[in-house]
Amino acid sequence: MSSDPPGYELPLLLLFGFRSLIDDLHAELARQGHPDARPMHGFVFQAIGHEGTTAVELGRALGISKQAAGKTIDTLERLGYVYRERDPQDGRRMTVRLTDRGVDSLVKSVRIFDQLRARWAKTLGAERLRALEDDLRKVTPPDAARLDMPGWITTS
């Protein structure tokens, strides 16, 4: 009889580790002035990037409908994280860009993730954490860093 845990535990442990990091990130973001930030917002901010994007492009990047992207943009605009402006090349097209508040949220997220990683290193040991990261890179496809996680999780 094998002493290995059942195979279904691996994806659950990876998911629970991810959830733990994201929950801790958002608790700290709330303390640092971003109480309305949600996990989906990080994907949106990354998809908007430095150049901005449209609702259609955002939906495509996130794997969600244009309508869902539009609602997300509306919410983030109301919260002060993004703004819309007419594209100077095509006046019919609206470009979504990050506000200073949106950029601040991203900058703080980077610092907080560094702190969370340091906490994991203290708990697991720096060498073991590096080995875990290296091993995950070995089993993760090179194109795994996609932003369509929200659509992947919610679509059938």
Rank of each mutant, 00 (worst) to 15 (best):
A121I: 01
R137T: 12
P35D: 08
D87P: 07
Q67I: 06
K108V: 07
G63E: 08
I64H: 00
D114G: 13
E85W: 03
V139N: 07
G151A: 11
T99R: 02
P142S: 13
L132M: 14
R31M: 11
G59E: 06
K66Q: 10
Q89R: 14
R130Q: 11
R92P: 02
W120Q: 12
A145D: 12
K71A: 04
T53Q: 01
A68K: 12
A126G: 02
W152L: 15
A30V: 03
E28T: 11
F45Y: 07
Q89S: 12
G91I: 00
D143G: 10
Q32Y: 02
R117S: 14
K71Y: 10
I73Y: 01
L132A: 13
A121Q: 14
Q115G: 15
T75N: 09
G91E: 07
R97I: 00
I73W: 02
P39T: 05
G80F: 05
L106Q: 15
G151R: 09
E127Y: 07
K71R: 13
D74M: 06
L76P: 06
D87T: 02
E77Q: 10
R84W: 02
P150F: 01
R146H: 15
R119D: 14
G125Y: 06
R101E: 12
G102W: 09
R117T: 13
R31G: 04
V110S: 14
Y81K: 07
M40L: 15
K138I: 10
K66R: 14
V110R: 15
R31T: 14
R86I: 08
G125R: 05
E85L: 10
Q32W: 03
R84K: 14
F45C: 03
L58F: 06
R97D: 01
R86T: 15
Q89V: 03
G80W: 04
G91H: 07
V96P: 00
R137W: 08
P35W: 08
T99V: 02
T54Q: 10
T72Y: 02
L79H: 10
A47W: 00
L29W: 04
D114H: 12
P141G: 13
R93E: 08
D100P: 00
Y81D: 08
L106F: 09
L136E: 09
H41P: 00
K71G: 04
R92V: 05
T75D: 11
Y83C: 01
L62D: 06
Q32V: 04
R146P: 00
R146W: 08
I64C: 04
P141R: 15
L116P: 12
W120S: 10
R31W: 01
G151S: 13
D148K: 05
G49R: 07
T72W: 02
G33N: 06
L147E: 10
E28W: 01
